[in-house]
Amino acid sequence: MNTAQFIPEILTENIEKANFTWQTPSNIALVKYWGKSNPQMPKNASISFTLNNCHTITTIAFSKIERTAEVKFDLFFEGKEKEEFKPKIAEFFKRVQEYCPYIFNYKMTINSENSFPHSSGIASSASGLSAIAMCLMSLENELNPSITQEFINKKASFLARLGSGSASRSIEGPLVVWGNHPEIAESSDLFGVQFPYKVHSVFKNYQDAILLVDKGEKVVSSTVGHNLMHNHPYAESRFTQANDNLGKISEILQNGDLEAFVSLVESEALTLHAMMMTSNPYFILMKPNTLEIINKIWKYRAENKSNICFTLDAGANVHVLYPENEKDSVNNFIENELANYCQNKQFIYDSVGFGAKKI
């Protein structure tokens, strides 16, 4: 795999100060990745919807300094200095230093905020690390104006992946594949690529309502969960299943078979949690209200001949997916019934989005 393409050879410009702001989205995987090897390489390919409303806005102010042996940065989250977040970001900078050597020449002040609760299973690492990656690439573009937007997006995805695997899928949209797969052209373990085929119209502006069952921090971090796959008795079968499912959902996204979409997406969500429940140590990240919501969705779907379905990330919150032509009826169902199972009756209406935006 060619990582050398991301090492800058010539930086022609001298930039003393710069300031960049990016809004980058979270994403929700339809086919899940669970299990990785170093450095942040997926054990199976995955595909996600890029979201629109759930995002991180990050500003990085760069000030030129004498080159130092370690990266200098201050970190503020939602207006407050966050020392507890710094080790993860410091580790990210350590991983990308070979590809972004210019970061040793600058003091960085990072200001970040989310449009959703942090660490509650809405992929805050994905949106947060992708935003930092886009800011770094904005600086690199200033230092080397000859690089193309295509290269910027590819390298940003590559960099973001080194901080959070799912962050590689938050640069572009509306559908992004991460992980080498024989049926997806140009797919790679190194970065995400846009789904390369024409998507059926039923999946345009697809809706995702995120039901906040539990806004607290997850019981187990994704990093710990991924590591538990190394000795998992069902790991290899799971990796094979996920890659097979990606091939299946590729066809579904093209032919518009909503019944098959519902079945595959829900199976993927439950399989993800089954892997956590059968690891050692084992975890149950769903809450009682998660299961109540799932059963309510199944009942509603059967009674209304609906195409509503659910998916889950590594947490208790439920993503309710449905086509735009069911928006009014499903939203009524959410507000009148499902909201009762959410913490403080809170949920977020979202839909498929198109990736990072410079502000």
Rank of each mutant, 00 (worst) to 15 (best):
T50H: 02
P281M: 14
G173P: 07
S187M: 09
I249D: 06
S250G: 15
L162S: 03
N317I: 00
T3D: 13
H226K: 05
K72N: 11
H55L: 10
S119M: 00
S37R: 15
I294T: 00
S306H: 13
E113L: 11
S329I: 14
I147W: 05
I348P: 14
E172D: 00
E150W: 10
S329F: 08
V177I: 15
K357E: 12
N141A: 11
K218T: 08
P233R: 08
A131H: 05
N27K: 10
P101C: 01
I147E: 01
V96F: 02
N243G: 04
N344A: 09
N227S: 11
S26L: 05
Q343G: 05
V176D: 06
A18S: 15
E150I: 13
E81R: 15
M134K: 03
T21F: 01
K94L: 10
K305H: 10
L321Q: 02
P281V: 12
P117H: 04
N295Q: 13
T21Q: 06
I60V: 15
V224R: 05
Q149L: 13
E292A: 09
G79E: 04
S188H: 12
E78V: 00
E217N: 12
H230R: 12
Q5T: 11
D313A: 06
H226S: 09
F116N: 04
T3A: 14
N153L: 02
P182H: 09
E142R: 14
N245P: 06
F333V: 01
I132H: 09
D208E: 07
L139V: 07
M275G: 01
Q194E: 13
N53S: 11
S120L: 01
D313L: 10
P323I: 04
P288L: 12
L30K: 04
M277Q: 14
F310C: 03
L11C: 07
V199K: 13
P42T: 08
S124I: 03
K72F: 13
E9C: 08
F85V: 06
E324D: 13
L270K: 14
T50N: 04
S164E: 01
K17Q: 12
C135W: 04
E172Y: 02
A131K: 01
L139H: 10
K296Q: 15
N289D: 12
C135P: 02
A260I: 09
I359V: 10
E172S: 13
F191A: 01
I171H: 09
C342S: 07
F195R: 07
S115W: 11
L51Y: 04
T148C: 03
N332L: 08
K248F: 10
H319T: 05
T109N: 13
E292C: 11
M1H: 11
F195M: 10
I7T: 15
A45T: 09
E113D: 03
Q207T: 05
N325K: 14
S168T: 04
N295K: 15
F354A: 07
T59Y: 03
Y206T: 12
F261K: 02
S237N: 12
L212C: 06
N340D: 07
N336F: 13
K107Q: 15
I152C: 02
I65C: 12
K218P: 09
N340F: 12
L270P: 07
L175D: 00
Q207E: 04
S125R: 05
L258P: 01
I152F: 10
T148F: 01
S201Y: 14
P323R: 10
L211F: 11
G353I: 11
F151M: 07
I210L: 14
K88H: 15
N205I: 10
I47T: 09
